[in-house]
């Protein structure tokens, strides 16, 4: 039996922070397969018109859209030495980049 509890803030309230998700196709890896921790990933923009999210990672550009999870996700962490998970955050919204990333250079040459 493993318990799941909501994290409590200092006032004893159980309204965990709302975190965000970026969802994209495939895997993220560094060129030399070094650990991802601490690395810079890319820049996130949004267009003035329609607020389309744009993510530029290396030489790739990704156009996305905002979506709400049909069912929110609880972010849980197991308590050390206890059969208990604590829900530290809730994720209800994501930026979904479901199309294949476009190479920036190739894009330019297509335009010509």
């Amino acid at each position: 039996m493993i318990l799941v509890k909501m994290i409590e803030n200092d006032d004893g309230l159980r309204s965990p922070p709302e975190w965000a998700a970026l969802e994209m196709q495939g895997e993220l890896e560094t060129r030399r397969h070094t650990p991802l921790e601490n690395q810079y990933v890319g820049d996130l923009f949004a267009t003035v018109q329609d607020g389309v999210p744009i993510l530029i990672i290396g030489h790739h550009i990704l156009y996305g859209k905002m979506q709400t999870f049909e069912k929110p996700l609880a972010v849980m962490k197991k308590k050390p030495e206890a059969d208990e998970y604590v829900v530290e955050a809730i994720v209800t919204k994501k930026l979904l980049f479901k199309n294949r990333p476009k190479p920036i250079i190739a894009c330019n040459s297509d335009d010509l």
């Binding site: 991802l36 601490n38 890319g42 949004a46 267009t47 607020g51 849980m76 197991k78 998970y85």
Partner: peptide
């Protein structure tokens, strides 16, 4: 583009979180 640009970094440590649909 909107003026607020958000550069994204990986954190210094990935916690061992589990995700549960609610």
């Amino acid at each position: 583009l909107k003026p607020n640009v958000q550069p994204i970094y990986f954190g210094e440590k990935f916690e061992n979180y589990k995700l549960l649909q609610l």
